[in-house]
Design a binder for these strands. Sequence first.
DNA 1: GTCTATATGCGGATAGAC
DNA 2: GTCTATCCGCATATAGAC
Lengths: 222, 222
Amino acid sequence: MKVDTKTIILDTAERLFADSGFIATSLRDITSKANVNLAAVNYHFGTKEALLAAVMERRFRPINDARLQLLDELEASTNNKTITLEGLLKAFLIPPFHQQREWGEPGKKFLKLAGHIHGENNEEIRLLLLKQFVTVLERFTKAFHHVLPHLEPSEINRRMAFLIGAMAFAMMNAEQITASDSKDSQQPEQLLTSLIKFCVGGMTGSDSAPTSSSAVLNGVHK
Amino acid sequence: MKVDTKTIILDTAERLFADSGFIATSLRDITSKANVNLAAVNYHFGTKEALLAAVMERRFRPINDARLQLLDELEASTNNKTITLEGLLKAFLIPPFHQQREWGEPGKKFLKLAGHIHGENNEEIRLLLLKQFVTVLERFTKAFHHVLPHLEPSEINRRMAFLIGAMAFAMMNAEQITASDSKDSQQPEQLLTSLIKFCVGGMTGSDSAPTSSSAVLNGVHK
DNA sequence: GTCTATATGCGGATAGAC
DNA sequence: GTCTATCCGCATATAGAC
C-alpha cells in the first residue's frame, strides 16, 4: 500500500499546522515526521506557503462545494421565497462538520486548522482563505438579506462576523469540547446541533436587548 | 513629557503583536519602532514571552476586575435570584469594549490582540491567557448555570465556547467592522450592542432547532 | 524523484563597556 | 539604564550529484 510522497506531506503538514500553527511549524518538522527528505517540500510544492495553500484547497473545495450545492437545492426547492433561517444556517454549518466525520482523524485536524485560519492575522494567509471563501460568502450574504429583510446590511455583516466567530471556535475546539463529555458516540453531532441552535438564536436576535448606546448599561449598573 | 522606556516598549509591543501576531513580531521590530535599544527588552522584561505577559496583564487586569465587579453588583442587587441572561452577558461583554474607548487607539490594538489570543494554539500563550481568565471563567460559568438551569452542564460549556468565539471575532475585527459603516461616531457602541443581542439570542437557544442527529439535515435535503 | 550539502539570513538572548 | 558586538541556533530555499 504505497502512498504518494506528495500526499504524505499534505497529511503531515495538515496535522502539524493544526497542532502548532503555520509559522511555528518548520519544514524540518514536517519532513522529519513524514519520513521524507527536507527538499521534497520545495520540489513538490515550491514554498511553505504554497504547501499551506494546497492543504487548504484539498479540504475547503469539497466543503464549500457542498455548501453551495445545499444552498442551490434550498433555493430551488422553495423557489427562493420561503427559505428558513435554520435551513440557511444548516447549509453553511453542516458541510465542514460532516466532512470531518467522513475524513476521520485528518478531518479533525483540518477542522482545527480551519478554525485557526479564520482568525489568522497574517495578510497572505487571510488572502488564501478568502480565495477559497469569497463565492460562498457572497452567496450566503445575499441569502441572509433575503431571510432577514428587517435587518440593515451593516447589522447583517456584524452578525455574520459573530456567526463565523462562533463557528471558528467550534472548529478549533471540537477536539476538546467533544472529549470533555461523558458519552463518546454522539458528541460531534451534539456540537454541531448546539452550534446551529446558538446561531439560529443569535441571527434571529432578541428585540428585548437595547439598541441605544445610553441604555447599554441597563441592568448592570445600579 | 518624558515617558518611561518600559512603557514605550509595552505600547509598541502591544501594537505590533496585534497587527502581526506574537511569533511574527521580532524583538528587533519592536525596539526599532520604539526607538530603544535591542537589549532593553531583555533588560526590562527578561524574555519575549514575559513581555507578552506584561502586555496582557496591563489591560486584562482592569477588564477582568470590572467584569467581576459588575457581576458582584448584579448578584448583590438581585439577591442572586433574578439575574437576567442579558445582565449577565453585559457584565461579561461590556468591560473590554468600554475600556477600549477609554484607552483610545492603544485600546483598539489591545482588543485586536486579545481577540487573536483567545484563538491562540500555542500552549504557553494559552496558559498566559488562562491565568488572567480563570477566575472570571469560573464565576461566570456558575452564573450561567443559575440563569439557564434547564441546560445541561455540557451544553452550557458549548454555548460559552460559541459566546467567546463570537466575542473574540468582534474584538479582532472591531477595526474593520466599525470602519466599514457609514456613520463614524456610534460604531463601537453599535458593534457591542449587536454582539450582546446576538449572544442573548444564542444563549437562549431556539427550541425549534432539532436535537436528534438524524434530523439535522431536515430543511436542507429534499 | 530523491538525496547531501550549503547558501543566506533572521531569530532570541547575553557579555561587557560606558 | 543604555549601548555595541556577538554567540549560536534555526529558518527557508536551492544547487547539484545520484
